[in-house]
Design a protein around this nucleic acid. Sequence first.
DNA 1: AAAATACACTAACTAACGTTAGCATTTAAG
DNA 2: CTTAAATGCTAACGTTAGTTAGTGTATTTT
Lengths: 196, 196
Amino acid sequence: MGRIKTESNASRKEVIIEKAAALFKEKGFKAASMRELADIVGVEAASLYNHIKSKNELLNIICFDVANRYMHKLDEIEAEKTTSIAKIEKLLRYHIEGMLNHFDEVYVSDREWKHLDNPYLSNLQTQRRAYRKRFAALIEEGIRRKEIKKIDAPTAVLIMLHAISGIESWHRSKQKISGKELEENMVTIMIDGLRK
Amino acid sequence: MGRIKTESNASRKEVIIEKAAALFKEKGFKAASMRELADIVGVEAASLYNHIKSKNELLNIICFDVANRYMHKLDEIEAEKTTSIAKIEKLLRYHIEGMLNHFDEVYVSDREWKHLDNPYLSNLQTQRRAYRKRFAALIEEGIRRKEIKKIDAPTAVLIMLHAISGIESWHRSKQKISGKELEENMVTIMIDGLRK
DNA sequence: AAAATACACTAACTAACGTTAGCATTTAAG
DNA sequence: CTTAAATGCTAACGTTAGTTAGTGTATTTT
């Protein structure tokens, strides 16, 4: 069928990963086949294995790329010297922008991690748990400082993370507002609530 | 292996559907196999087909059961004569309780509908779109009545529905607060926001 | 008790999947 | 220009999947 086309900077492996993320998002990891991915990449299925070890390796890479990116950002934000609300808002905005700019990867990482195999599965679960715990700690700090009302911090984290992952419906919707407007609306609603 | 055990009221088909929902939730629709489901039900795989037409029929039933339940509730709530905020809160609580009481079904309906085949796929998509539109209309009514701040209504719907579907993490977590507390916290955060 | 229905079993089919082996061809290095 | 490495292809493998056919047994109906 021909060679895999790369755009100057990207390796062939990176091209495959990118297309895989889009396919896994669309069909789900299990329902997506290597022959389909090969078609999209423009190559025969067997040729993919010159670049990758297995289908699962693709999922591993996608999931950990995303997880590591968010972990780094959290490190950065925790170190800042601002109010708790400001930190939370910053993290929230980072999540929203991540969802807007790296949609496929983030979506797959969020919804398909179940299909990782060990030890990657346990590793990612541990990492995600730790992330949520640190996020919750940020909220609890805000409660102690009386910036935030007394609510259950893990519940707040759960709401925010899942609300953001809902941007997929926004992606699919026809009459959509701009990314920036979406971000402002989400932050407003989550920080200040619906009630006027 | 033996007959399927039913509890007085439930037909054998209902038993299968119930177990299927739990299995599809745990593994995902595509990754769950009929042989596995048969094992759980306590029967050989082929025997399932005395009760159901296909694997996909199970998914159809699960998805439309859930969708119809929410549609009915929305009909009911729209007809009430209260404030918009009260209507939204009521719907929110219904969603939260649905997630707590029929977790497997709701979860599967939310995450696995992609694997429906036509015409069910289009039907459900249409129904869900209609639901979100009517939910958004409730919010817009609230904005007109000045009960709710000026935000993008579809975004608010997106946030609320996905926040609720996040209750899965709550289900998985060890140190969890009670269902009632969870409900109160979610409603508080979404109606009134984080900020004190 | 006999007849009809509901339900379960074994065995097997076809299709699709991820992946490997072995060989050909293109690209890059010496 | 020759050689080595990278990358592609065809063919095929072993598994697993959903499902059907055909047959026997339990349950319900008459």
